[in-house]
C-alpha cells in the first residue's frame, strides 16, 4: 500500500536526517584540527549566540514569555565569573556551578512579581528587572562600580577550548529544547501556545509550565553568559546588562523563525556573519540589522525557517507526535 510506502520513506528520511546531524556535529567538533583561527573565532560567537537565541525561543516562541530582560542573566553570569575568578581566585568550573545556583535563585525570586504580569506588561516588567539589576551593579563598590572588572584569568584560555565549550552549549541548547518539546511538558507548551484557555481546562498547569521554562532558559542563558565573558574577558555593567543582548536574541529568533528549533540556528549564523561584516561599516550596524529584520518580517513573517517549512514542509527537528500503532 502507498500508506506503508510513505511510512517507510519517512523512516528513511528520519535516518538520513539523524545521520546528517551526527556527521555535522562531528565535523564541527573537529573544526580546531582543520579550521583557521578566524573560523574558530566565528564558531565561538555563532554557538554562543545560538544558545542565547534557542533559549529566547523557548521563552517567547514556545512559552509565550516575551522577555526583554534576560540580559540580566548574561550580566549575572559575567559578574559571577569575574567575582569568582578575580576576587576569590576560583576556577571556571566553580564559576559555572555558582552561576547556576545564583540564576535559579534569582529567577525564582523575580518570577513571583513578574509572572503576575502578562503580555506586553510582562515584557516591560522583565526589562525593568534587568535595568534595576544594572543600577545595582553600577553602584556596587565590590564589583568596582561602572569601571568594570578585568577577568584576567580568561586572557589565556586557548581559543579551541572556548570553541568546544561554545559548541557544547549550542548543541545542548538545541537538544534541550528538542527534548522538552518531545516530553509531556512540550505537549503542554504547545497546547498552551495554541489555546491557553482550552489547555487549562485539560489540566495543563499554565503557571508551573511557564515557570519551569523560565527557570531553564534563565539558567542556560546565565551559563552562556559565563562562557561569553570567558571570551570577552572584560566586564562592565552597562554592556553586560545591556538591552543589546535582548535585541540580538530577538533578531536571531525572529529572522530564523520563532517557534522552530532550526530558526535560532539559522538566525545565529546570519547574525554573527553580519556582525563580522559590519565591523568595517562603523555606525551602520544597527541600521543594517534593523532593515534586515524589517524586510524579513515583511517578506517572511514566520522567519526563514517558518517560510521554508510553509513552502516545503521540511523540518530538521520534528517535534510532531506520531500516531502509535
Amino acid at each position: 500500500m502507498t500508506h506503508k510506502h510513505v511510512l517507510s520513506s519517512a523512516y528513511k528520511l528520519i535516518g538520513i536526517k539523524s545521520g546528517v546531524i551526527v556527521a555535522a556535529i562531528i565535523a564541527l567538533a573537529l573544526l580546531p584540527l582543520y579550521g583557521s583561527a578566524h573560523a574558530i573565532n566565528v564558531g565561538i560567537l555563532v554557538f554562543s549566540y545560538l544558545a542565547l537565541g534557542q533559549m529566547w525561543n523557548l521563552l517567547a516562541g514556545y512559552s509565550g514569555l516575551v522577555s526583554l530582560g534576560h540580559q540580566a542573566f548574561i550580566g549575572i553570569g559575567a559578574y559571577t565569573l569575574a567575582v569568582v575568578t578575580v576576587s576569590y581566585g576560583g576556577g571556571f568550573f566553580m564559576s559555572f556551578l555558582i552561576s547556576i545556583v545564583i540564576a535559579v535563585l534569582f529567577s525564582l525570586v523575580i518570577s513571583f512579581p513578574i509572572f503576575k504580569l502578562s503580555g506586553v506588561y510582562f515584557t516591560i516588567g522583565t526589562w525593568i528587572v534587568s535595568e534595576s539589576v544594572l543600577m545595582f551593579f553600577r553602584n556596587w563598590r565590590f564589583v568596582n562600580f561602572d569601571a568594570g572588572m578585568n577577568i584576567t584569568r580568561a586572557f589565556r584560555i586557548p581559543q579551541e577550548n572556548l570553541y568546544l565549550g561554545a559548541l557544547a552549549l549550542g548543541i545542548v541548547s538545541v537538544a534541550l529544547v528538542y527534548f522538552i518539546l518531545r516530553s509531556k511538558m512540550g505537549l503542554s507548551l504547545m497546547a498552551m501556545r495554541d489555546n491557553p484557555a482550552a489547555a487549562e481546562v485539560r489540566g495543563v498547569h499554565l503557571y508551573k509550565t511557564k515557570l519551569i521554562c523560565f527557570l531553564i532558559a534563565s539558567t542556560f542563558i546565565t551559563i552562556t553568559g559565563v562562557l561569553l565573558y570567558m571570551n570577552i574577558a572584560f566586564v562592565m555593567p552597562g554592556p553586560a546588562f545591556g538591552i543589546d543582548w535582548a535585541v540580538s536574541m530577538v533578531f536571531i529568533v525572529v529572522i530564523g523563525g520563532i517557534g522552530t528549533i532550526e530558526g535560532p540556528i539559522i538566525g545565529a549564523a546570519i547574525y554573527v556573519f553580519l556582525r563580522q561584516f559590519l565591523f568595517n561599516f562603523p555606525g551602520m550596524s544597527l541600521i543594517i540589522l534593523g532593515s534586515i529584520a524589517v524586510i524579513v518580517i515583511l517578506v517572511a513573517p514566520k522567519g526563514i525557517m517558518g517560510a521554508i517549512h510553509g513552502k516545503f514542509g521540511f523540518e530538521l527537528f520534528s517535534v510532531r507526535r506520531k500516531m502509535e500503532d
Partner: peptide, 23 residues
C-alpha cells in the same frame, strides 16, 4: 550523553586557564 559532552568541554576550558593563582 549530552550532559557528559558538555561537562567534558567545560573541563577542557578549565584546563586552559593560567596555571597557578596568579596571571
Amino acid at each position: 550523553a549530552l550532559c557528559l559532552v558538555f561537562a567534558l568541554s567545560l573541563a577542557a576550558c578549565n584546563g586552559g586557564s593560567a596555571p597557578g593563582g596568579t596571571p
